[in-house]
């Protein structure tokens, strides 16, 4: 089958999307914009991890995607907590 060639044709599109997300993550005027950019970058990276794991034919590489999804959610919650603590005065 042509799985490797198809993935080699699709991955450059993901790289273009990475560049677009990075532009917003570096530019974004307010802090929530930066955090949204990091969020999208990391979800893009999770897809790249799994798709390149199929490309290399090494199934053990896939375990890196689950901690990525969990810890980026933790980063969201930290920043939201930091912003709300300043307005509540604690």
């Amino acid at each position: 089958m042509f799985v490797q060639e198809f993935i080699a044709a699709v991955v450059p599109l993901y790289l273009v999307a990475t560049a677009l997300y990075l532009y917003r993550a570096l530019k974004g005027p307010t802090i929530p914009d930066h955090v949204l950019g990091v969020d999208l970058l990391s979800y893009n990276l999770a897809v790249l991890f799994i798709v390149l794991g199929i490309f290399f034919k090494e199934p053990i590489l896939i375990v890196t995607a689950i901690p990525l999804a969990l810890w980026i959610y933790a980063l969201d919650i930290y920043v939201a907590k930091y912003l709300e603590r300043r307005v509540m005065g604690a």
Binding site: P32, V35, L36, D39, I72, Y73, D76, I77, V79, A80, K81, L83, E84
Partner: peptide, 8 residues
């Protein structure tokens, strides 16, 4: 995560 960020 998006909801927490937008609320903050």
């Amino acid at each position: 995560g998006s909801h927490a960020l937008a609320r903050a």
